[in-house]
């Protein structure tokens, strides 16, 4: 029995545990989001009813805002971007950086931001990834360079992340196959202008970095994503290379039907991946992240919501006694009428 590289990939944990269809991926996120809402509701229910802020909160519970599915995804991507910057700060390799980012996205396929704030999880993902990918950074060095964190806060989540990763830590990224294509293209198309290839290889590496902020790593294999990124930089080159690899260069009549089909199938995948890299790489703004983070704060500590209501009421009472003019926003008006 000949074991192909495809067979080997199918045996990897990346394929067995971390490859999904689009709908499976959506389903996991819906379930995680529901779990986050349920956990938050439990936290609300556990609050001591005798406290005035809790009473007020119970009266206004319909106004409590959970984090929406789409917001979860955007906030995770916001922190994935910060993870990339932090990795650059520590001079970590593409492998460490990408693995950390994948850990972060994987973590939130099974948990909600309403359970664990991604700002904390991201740090542990990076710390763990540095160990997994052989670029150990001591916890004290790591923390010294990051404001507002402690070794305990980072190590506390290490085990949780490990477990969520199903103890499968290996990540295959498109960088290595991209380098493989870079070498093989030179072999296959020896007359090619090397500067053109070199420039497009660099461009493709940048796009591979962007592909991490999409769902592609869960949906396609690293070589497929690598080819798509290279194709975005130089479609003529990639199509010429693949035609030659599939033996489609000579326009003869006895062209292999199978080969044509394979080629076309691959091109459909490449075009689709390219489209996703170009249009779906998320990069939410800091303002947006702050808004979502504020919601998470209330989900993690719902008593804060009660306190917020108390404060609002207090302000309104003060306002009422000071002047009769109505100055409240919609929310306040609503509170008063209840």
């Amino acid at each position: 029995m000949v074991v192909s590289n495809d067979d080997l990939f199918r045996r990897s944990t990346q394929y067995r545990f971390w490859s999904f269809t689009h709908s499976q991926l959506e389903e996991l996120r819906i379930v995680a989001n529901k779990k986050g809402i349920q956990k938050t509701e439990e936290r609300i229910n556990e609050l001591d009813d005798s406290l005035p802020e809790v009473k007020l909160m119970r009266e206004n519970q319909d106004q409590f805002q959970f984090v929406h599915l789409d917001e979860e995804k955007r906030l995770i991507s916001y922190y994935a971007r910060r993870c990339k910057e932090l990795a650059a700060f520590f001079h970590l390799s593409a492998q460490v950086r990408s693995t950390a980012i994948m850990y972060l996205y994987k973590f939130y396929l099974y948990h909600s931001v309403m359970e664990y704030h991604p700002g904390n999880i991201m740090l542990t993902c990076l710390f763990l990834s540095a160990k997994v990918e052989n670029h150990f950074i001591g916890i004290n060095t790591f923390c010294k360079n990051i404001p507002k964190t402690t070794p305990e806060a980072i190590l506390k989540n290490e085990y949780l992340i490990l477990e969520t990763m199903k103890f499968s830590l290996q990540c295959h990224h498109p960088f290595q196959p991209l380098y493989g294509f870079f070498l093989d293209i030179q072999q296959t198309l020896p007359k090619l202008d090397f500067n053109r290839l070199g420039k497009n290889y660099d461009g493709a590496r940048e796009l591979v970095n962007e592909s991490l902020f999409t769902d592609l790593p869960f949906l396609y294999t690293p070589p497929q994503i690598a080819l798509a990124c290279l194709w975005l930089c130089d479609d003529v080159l990639v199509e010429k290379y693949l035609s030659k690899k599939f033996g489609l260069v000579k326009k003869s009549e006895q062209e292999d039907e199978d080969a044509i089909q394979h080629y076309n199938k691959l091109m459909v995948i490449i075009r689709h991946c390219a489209d996703v890299v170009r249009k779906e790489a998320l990069d939410p703004s800091q303002d947006e992240s702050k808004t979502i983070s504020a919601k998470i704060k209330l989900c993690l500590e719902p008593i804060r919501f009660g306190r917020k209501l108390m404060k609002q009421n207090g302000e309104q009472a003060a306002k009422r006694s000071g002047s009769i003019t109505e100055g409240g926003d919609e929310k306040r008006v609503k509170l008063e009428t209840e």
Binding site: S12, K131, V132, E158, L162, L169, Q170
Partner: peptide
């Protein structure tokens, strides 16, 4: 042994787990 190392889970344990998960 966890908790005995100041840097969290030991590197050797991580490597052993990482690679044995892939190799059957």
């Amino acid at each position: 042994k966890t908790g005995t190392f100041k840097d969290g889970l030991d590197m050797s344990a991580i490597r052993e787990m990482k690679y044995l998960q892939e190799l059957k």
